[in-house]
Each structure stands twice: as C-alpha cells, then as structure tokens.
Amino acid sequence: MAVTAAGLSQRLVNWARARSPWITVFNSGACNACDIEIIACLMPRFDVERFGILVKGSPRHADILIVTGHVTLKQASRLRRVWEQMPEPKYVIAMGACGASGGVFHGLYHMMDSVDKVIPIDVYVAGCPPRPDEIINAVVTCLNLLREDALHGGREWRKKAVPVTRTEEKTCGVIP
C-alpha cells in the first residue's frame, strides 16, 4: 500500500472533520421545541462539546446545518441562502417530524411541507421534538456519512440532486 503525502494529509483531514463538527441552527419557522432541545444538548447533562461540537453563529464557520422544522414560505429563500453560504463539505440534518414532512402542519397554506424541497437533506431525525440523545445519534449518523463520503470521494455517490424549486429561481434573482 503506497503511502503518499497527499493520501496521508487527506486521511488527517478526514480524521479531523469527524472530530470537529461545528453546527449552525436554522429555525425555518418551527415551534421552538427543537431549538430548545438542541440547546439542551449543549448543557452539562449531555454536553456535546465532548464530541467537539460547537454551535456557531455564522454559517460560514459551520459544517453541519441543523434545520429545525417545516419551512415557511418566507423562510425558504433564507434557508437556501444560508445553505449556500456554508463552505463545502456541508451536511444538513432535518430535525423532527416537521423537517421530514411538516409534521402536524402538513399541508398548511403558508408552508413548503418539507425541508428537502429547498435543500438536500442528509440525515433525518424522528421525534417531535427529538430527545437530546436522539439528536446526538443524528450527529453521529451524519459523521458516519461523512466518513463514507470521504471513502467515495464526495457526496455524489448518494445521488442526491440539489432540488430546484421556485424559491431558488426567486432567490437567484436577488443574489448577484
């Protein structure tokens, strides 16, 4: 097995990525419960800092975007922009039932129903809201996915095309 400097550095970077996932939380119009539970993860009881997880304010610094909740029409374009601002490699976790389908708000008139109509989702978490341990599980799932992606040299192998929505067309008109 040939050990090259490039290969080593790549392995080092992959090791580091799995150990320092910085997250940013985007509330796309949710009911707060998921946000509370995410903050509860940071607390002494669960303390996700022992996995190296930090909650960052700026999407520029983050690796994982946690979207809490269904997407209201007004938040859809903003969500898309926050996602576009994040540097690669980036991962998205959709929190709870609302992230997967809108949950109890499924089908209301001012909503997009689910997050994956706006941005591609990597990991789903069940629950309304998920318990903090389930959130930790989700981050772990996401990190496993990250390792797998590193083996396959990118996320393309999962064939998750970036969905094109009307929101995106609208957004692209605004962002130069």
Partner: peptide
Amino acid sequence: ELSCSGTDG
C-alpha cells in the same frame, strides 16, 4: 424507545 436517525425520510 428512541427512534433511529437515517438518511431516508
């Protein structure tokens, strides 16, 4: 019991 988390919604 806790639910799982997964990549397929």
